[in-house]
């Protein structure tokens, strides 16, 4: 009972309850919201966002940020489509795309860690470079005429559950286990919490940081595959403002923007909140052109709440010392 109370009181618990409250609220206005087809739709929408935002969360935990994810998602989706079109079997192009994603993470990590460019600036520059490169290579043309088999992941299902949801659940489980229960995961928290102390403790800080960006790139690749295999054509401008959504999911889920703390399960819930709100806009007949403003406001509110909690926590510690 006590642990349940504690769970509810934690940031992740609050967000989880928030999801239920929003869902209940919309259902009251429009009961069709609770239909299985709609829930399935929400889950499929949330799957790629969740997978990608887990990586973003890890990066934010290290104290960094990634603004290039939208462009990378587009790049990887296009590669995925192109490889499929070339007739490669699914496992092969899956692996190739994940490798490519990991490589983009390596590029990020290398520039940030080895060349000491602030993460914000580095990824902003890379965003422009990737977007430019995509348009240059494709000439803005979409990839069409994809083979039928291409949609296995995106449209198929396993025992009635969409494949993309299955993949999401596997990835979330792995990521939570990785961050909570493995040494590299704990090292990521340590580096984000206090990098110089991590170095003194014998943690290879640079390797950990670069590794985080690489894992994040890998996750982004999986997200790209889950995302692009739902469509029969792949556009060159997909993933616009994706980084905003990912950051929103992470900070709403309780990841501290100052680095060092945050739980990945919270990020999962954060992604859920965002997607449900988006769907809600449709159900409440509000123009989706307001979506972007809403996400921006949500990020700001989530950070303000996080700051407020931090402020309150530090006050109690000071009081404790004097007592």
């Amino acid at each position: 009972m006590k642990t349940i109370m504690k769970g509810i009181k934690s940031r992740e618990g609050v967000v989880a309850i928030l999801i239920l409250v929003i869902a209940a609220g919309i259902t009251m206005v429009n009961p069709s919201f609770m239909q299985w087809s709609n829930i399935k739709d929400i889950l499929m929408n949330v799957s790629y966002i969740t997978i990608a935002s887990l990586g973003m969360s890890m990066i934010i935990i290290t104290g960094g940020i990634d603004c290039s994810s939208g462009a990378v998602l587009a790049l990887l989706s296009l590669c995925c489509g192109q490889l499929a079109k070339m007739g490669l079997p699914l496992p092969i192009y899956f692996v190739l795309v994940v490798l490519l994603g990991t490589f983009t993470g390596l590029v990020n990590g290398f520039i940030i860690v080895k060349l000491h460019v602030p993460p914000m600036i580095c990824t902003l520059a890379l965003y422009n470079i990737y977007r430019g490169a995509i348009l240059l290579v494709t000439g803005g043309e979409w990839i069409t005429n994809l083979p039928k088999s291409f949609n296995i992941i995106g449209k198929g299902d396993l025992l009635g559950i969409p494949n993309s949801v299955v993949i999401m659940l596997v990835v979330v489980t792995w990521a939570v286990w990785f961050m909570e229960r493995t040494e590299p995961g704990r090292n990521i928290y340590a580096v984000g919490s206090n990098a110089s102390a991590a170095r003194l403790a014998g943690i290879r800080v640079e390797r950990t940081l670069i590794g985080t960006y690489m894992i994040s790139g890998g996750l982004l690749a999986i997200a790209s595959i889950v995302f692009c295999t739902r469509f029969t054509t792949i556009q060159t401008n997909v993933g616009e403002n994706l980084h905003l959504t990912l950051i929103a999911a992470a900070v709403i889920g309780g990841t501290s923007i100052l680095g060092g703390s945050g739980k990945l399960i919270g990020t999962f819930f954060g992604a859920m909140v965002l997607t449900i709100i988006r769907t809600a806009l449709v159900y409440l007949k509000i123009s989706t052109y307001w979506d972007q403003a809403l996400q921006g406001a949500l990020i700001l509110i989530a950070i303000l709440v996080g700051m407020y909690n931090l402020h309150r926590a530090s006050k109690t510690v000071k009081g404790g010392v004097s007592g």
Binding site: I247, Q292, I299
Partner: peptide
């Protein structure tokens, strides 16, 4: 409130841009 500027202004960038989009309906 001392929120890191890159994240705060990233959020407001989308907020303001989003308001423009919402008001004009693109």
């Amino acid at each position: 409130i001392k929120i890191p500027s890159f994240i705060a202004t990233l959020a407001t960038m989308f907020m303001y841009g989003g308001i423009a989009q919402g008001v004009s309906q693109a």
